[in-house]
Amino acid sequence: HRQALGERLYPRVQAMQPAFASKITGMLLELSPAQLLLLLASEDSLRARVDEAMELII
């Protein structure tokens, strides 16, 4: 289940942060499945989480 969510998330994360897409997707997969579904449904929520992840990385 998580694998399938990751496969759906990755291209969207890659479009926002290509250099760190794998790392960010891995970080996002730590969230609950319900939270992941919310990110897939909301571009704004996904962008906010990706921005948060980038702050942790750099």
Rank of each mutant, 00 (worst) to 15 (best):
V50C: 02
S45V: 12
H1A: 13
L38E: 15
G26L: 14
R8P: 03
G6E: 15
L36C: 04
A41N: 12
H1D: 15
R47S: 06
M27H: 04
I57C: 04
P11C: 12
Q14L: 10
P33H: 14
R49F: 15
L31C: 06
A34E: 15
I57E: 02
A15G: 08
E52F: 07
D51L: 12
L56S: 11
M16G: 02
E52K: 11
A53T: 09
M16K: 03
A21C: 02
G26Y: 10
A15D: 11
V13Y: 01
V50K: 00
H1R: 12
E43A: 08
P33Q: 15
L39W: 02
P11T: 13
R2L: 15
E43L: 05
P33M: 15
S22W: 10
Q14G: 06
G6T: 10
Q17F: 13
L37Q: 10
F20S: 03
S42Y: 08
T25R: 05
Q3M: 06
L39Y: 03
K23I: 15
M16H: 06
V50R: 00
E7L: 04
E52M: 12
K23E: 14
P11V: 13
G26P: 07
L9T: 02
Q3I: 07
E43S: 07
A15T: 07
S22Q: 11
L39P: 00
L38H: 13
L5F: 12
H1L: 10
L9V: 06
M27R: 03
Q35A: 13
A34V: 10
I58C: 06
M16V: 08
Q17N: 12
L46A: 00
R12G: 05
S22G: 10
L40M: 09
L39A: 09
M16Q: 07
A48R: 14
L38R: 09
L46M: 04
M54R: 06
H1Y: 02
S45G: 09
Q17C: 12
M16A: 04
E7V: 08
P18T: 02
L5R: 02
Y10G: 05
P18W: 03
S32G: 09
E43P: 09
G26K: 14
R8A: 14
Q17G: 03
L39K: 00
P33Y: 15
S45A: 15
R8S: 13
S32Y: 06
D51E: 15
E55K: 12
Y10D: 02
I58A: 12
D44H: 08
R47C: 03
I57M: 06
P11R: 12
L39M: 09
P18Y: 03
L9N: 01
L28V: 01
K23T: 12
I58P: 04
S22T: 12
R12L: 15
S45M: 14
R12A: 12
L56N: 09
M16N: 03
A41T: 11
D51R: 12
P33I: 15
P11H: 14
H1N: 14
A19N: 14
L5W: 08
E52Q: 12
I58W: 08
D51G: 08
A34I: 10
F20M: 08
A48G: 06
I57T: 02
L28E: 00
Q17T: 08
L46R: 00
A4S: 12
E52V: 07
L46Y: 00
Q3C: 08
P18K: 03
R2A: 13
L29F: 03
A34L: 10
D44T: 09
L56V: 13
V50W: 01
R8I: 15
S42T: 06
A34Y: 10
E30H: 08
M16W: 07
E30A: 09
R49P: 01
A19W: 05
G6Y: 15
I57N: 01
Y10K: 05
R47N: 04
L31V: 03
V50Q: 00
L46N: 00
L37C: 07
L56F: 13
R2H: 14
I24M: 00
V13L: 05
L28N: 00
E52G: 05
V50L: 03
A15C: 06
A4E: 15
L40F: 07
A19R: 10
L9D: 00
P33G: 08
P11N: 11
